[in-house]
Simulated scan of single mutants.
Amino acid sequence: MVGPLISDELALSPVEFGWVASAFFGSFALLQIPVGIAFDRWGVRRPMALMMLVGAARPLDGFIRFLVRVRWSGCGRNWMRADLHGRSVLSRTTTFT
């Protein structure tokens, strides 16, 4: 039902969409038994909370790595500091067109 809509939105060929779908369903099937055991042992709340934390931490991890790379590379040295008026240095030195 939604396969063609997703394929059109992401500009995927039928083969590429098949790989995406199989990756999702393969990982889902792979985790059925360990997650079921965890649910039986600790109930649903604790494993679900842990899975949600792990899922939410991945994008945050990527953002933190980006900030560290920008800071260490020296590229962000000027735009990460603010001047006395609260505007970034980048906004004074660069025109956006």
Rank of each mutant, 00 (worst) to 15 (best):
3 G>Y: 02
4 P>M: 03
4 P>T: 10
5 L>E: 05
6 I>A: 11
6 I>L: 12
7 S>G: 11
9 E>Q: 09
9 E>G: 06
10 L>T: 08
13 S>L: 05
14 P>T: 05
17 F>P: 03
17 F>Q: 09
18 G>R: 06
18 G>C: 05
19 W>L: 12
20 V>T: 06
21 A>E: 09
22 S>K: 05
22 S>I: 12
23 A>D: 08
23 A>V: 08
23 A>N: 04
24 F>M: 09
26 G>W: 10
27 S>H: 09
28 F>C: 14
28 F>I: 11
30 L>F: 15
30 L>Y: 10
32 Q>A: 15
34 P>N: 11
35 V>G: 04
36 G>W: 08
42 W>H: 14
43 G>T: 03
44 V>E: 04
45 R>N: 09
46 R>T: 11
47 P>N: 09
50 L>P: 01
50 L>S: 07
50 L>H: 06
51 M>N: 10
54 V>Q: 02
54 V>T: 13
57 A>S: 13
58 R>S: 07
58 R>N: 03
58 R>K: 06
59 P>T: 10
60 L>C: 06
60 L>I: 10
60 L>Q: 09
61 D>E: 12
63 F>G: 07
63 F>P: 00
66 F>H: 14
67 L>D: 05
68 V>N: 03
74 G>Q: 01
78 N>W: 02
79 W>A: 01
81 R>V: 02
82 A>Q: 04
84 L>Q: 06
84 L>W: 01
85 H>P: 00
87 R>F: 05
89 V>I: 08
89 V>T: 04
91 S>N: 03
91 S>V: 05
92 R>V: 00
95 T>A: 07
96 F>K: 13
97 T>R: 13
